[in-house]
Computed example of a mutant assay.
Amino acid sequence: MKNKRIKNISTKIVSQFWGKLERIDFDYYFKKGGWKRLSHEAYGKSDGVAILLYNPQTNKVVLSKQFRIPVYVAGVNQGYSIEVCGGAVDKGESPEACVMREAQEELGYKVSNVTHISTVFLSPGIVRERVHLFIGEYSDRDKMHYVGGGLEIENEEIEVLELSFKEALKMIDTNEIIDARTIMLLQYIKIKEMIEV
Rank of each mutant, 00 (worst) to 15 (best):
M1I: 08
M1C: 10
K2D: 14
K4N: 15
K4V: 12
R5N: 15
I6D: 07
T11Y: 09
K12L: 13
I13V: 15
I13W: 07
V14A: 10
S15T: 06
S15R: 12
Q16G: 12
L21R: 06
L21A: 09
R23Q: 14
R23M: 13
I24A: 07
D25T: 11
D27Q: 04
D27R: 00
Y28K: 05
Y29C: 11
W35D: 06
R37P: 03
S39W: 00
S39H: 01
H40C: 13
H40I: 14
E41T: 11
A42G: 10
Y43Q: 05
Y43S: 09
G44M: 05
D47N: 14
G48N: 11
G48C: 11
A50F: 06
I51Y: 03
I51N: 05
L52A: 01
L52H: 00
L52P: 00
L53G: 00
N55A: 07
N59R: 13
K60W: 02
K60N: 15
Q66I: 00
F67R: 07
R68G: 09
R68T: 03
I69C: 10
I69L: 15
V71M: 09
Y72L: 12
G75H: 09
G75K: 07
N77C: 10
N77I: 08
S81R: 03
I82D: 02
E83C: 03
G86T: 03
G86W: 03
G87S: 03
V89N: 05
V89F: 04
D90A: 12
S94P: 02
E96M: 09
A97M: 13
A97V: 09
V99E: 11
V99H: 06
M100W: 03
M100I: 12
R101L: 10
E102C: 00
A103H: 05
A103V: 00
E105N: 14
E105C: 08
G108V: 06
G108L: 12
Y109F: 13
S112L: 13
S112P: 01
V114Q: 07
T115K: 15
H116C: 04
S118I: 02
S118R: 08
T119W: 04
V120H: 00
V120D: 07
L122I: 13
S123G: 12
G125P: 01
V127G: 04
V127A: 14
R130V: 08
V131D: 05
H132I: 00
F134C: 01
E137R: 09
Y138T: 02
D140K: 10
R141P: 08
H145L: 15
G149I: 02
G150N: 01
I153F: 13
N155L: 15
N155T: 10
E156S: 04
E157P: 00
E157H: 11
E162Y: 01
L163I: 04
E167I: 04
K170M: 12
M171N: 08
M171L: 15
D173T: 11
I177Q: 01
I177M: 05
I177E: 01
I178F: 07
A180W: 06
T182Y: 05
T182H: 03
M184G: 04
M184N: 08
L185I: 01
K190M: 06
I191R: 15
K192E: 07
I195P: 02
E196I: 12
